[in-house]
Simulated scan of single mutants.
Amino acid sequence: MTPLRRLLVLATAVVLLAGLGTAFVLHAVSRADDKNKPRAGGPVVGAGPVTLDPKPRQVAFVNGAPGPHRTEVATVPAGSADGSRTASGLKCARFYAAAGTGVCLQSAVGVVSQTNRAVVVDAGLHTLRTFSLAGTPSRARVSPSGHFAAWTVFVGGESYGAAFFSTRTSIVDTRTWTLTPNLEAFTILLNGQKYHAADINFWGVTFATDDDTFYATLGTGGHTYLVRGSLSRRTVTSLVQNVECPSLSPDGTRVAFKKRVLAGASLWHLYVLDLRTLKETALAEMHSVDDQATWLDDHTVAYALPKEGAVGTTDLWSVPADGTGTPHLLIPDASSPAPL
């Protein structure tokens, strides 16, 4: 091949590669644009003032509807949860709120790294304090008084169904801003004995009303346990096995949780545990639920399920807490419910 012919072949290859690169970029931009376009027949979402005050009664959540307000904290009236929603402008991967205090877990992917942080906000969603996170956001909760916020992140692995994963769970006092960076520093009483192991993980904190007691999941040795913790004593004590992502009822007597139904598989069923009798009641939802359920009131729990035909999007469902009834679509295109 002559030098001129080689030059012509090289030039043609460069042009073809440039064209392919442009096509890939345009396709990616088109996919991104489609993701941010409002879906025909989807929920009506509009920007407006959002407050975490308990009046009027509302449900706050992370909006998942396509459009410019996707991933923003939004609210709807509690009595018409499938109606028009008001978006706040605050973008979160996970969110929860109580008593005028909110915690927003954010994850932003940059050019060379990913930035994760927890943002504690007031009733007007103004930032009070920001904390760097050691991993990808997973769970968030605020105590009924608003005096404590907790969050769990993945620092290794990306799913509770993975063979190997590592979490870090933190709690902050929103009055003094004293931070407990890792619950693994607490003394663990497992089956009545002090316990320590290299594979300890905590996740899914839920708070009682006394500003001291909390419940969480302890994972170790291939098993999961419901533990009751004391913030003042810095201890956790195991109660029962095979409990994940507990959520304490408003009256403090029951815990909604997900229970693995097949060893080694990412399949969970929703249950409610009576803390007085330790009796478990299976709920009427038949789908596998990988979420920390939220009590809407003393009789109903809400949770997220993947939306059919939409990758990466969830709907919020609700079901009676006594095992009766049938699941009800609560808020489409949404996650992280917080009844205000």
Rank of each mutant, 00 (worst) to 15 (best):
E280H: 11
G46F: 05
H27C: 05
G146F: 01
A74V: 03
L26T: 14
S336D: 12
G264Q: 14
L52C: 03
L133Y: 00
Q292F: 08
G146N: 07
R139S: 09
A87V: 09
K259R: 15
V120N: 13
P77R: 00
P56T: 08
L52R: 02
S145I: 03
A197N: 11
Q106D: 04
Y96M: 02
F164E: 15
A263I: 07
G309P: 05
D291F: 07
V255Q: 14
A265R: 12
V227Q: 08
F148E: 15
E244P: 06
W177M: 15
S132Y: 06
V205F: 09
K258D: 14
H147C: 05
W268N: 15
R141T: 00
F165D: 02
V62K: 05
T2K: 14
Y303N: 12
F257W: 13
E158V: 08
A265I: 09
A185R: 14
E72N: 07
R139H: 08
D291T: 05
A293P: 11
T313W: 04
R168D: 00
S145V: 01
G89C: 13
V155G: 04
P137I: 01
T209Y: 06
V289E: 13
R139D: 06
R94K: 12
Y271V: 11
R117C: 00
A265S: 14
T187R: 01
A32W: 02
L128M: 15
T178Q: 13
P77Q: 04
R70Q: 14
N63Y: 01
T224F: 00
S288P: 14
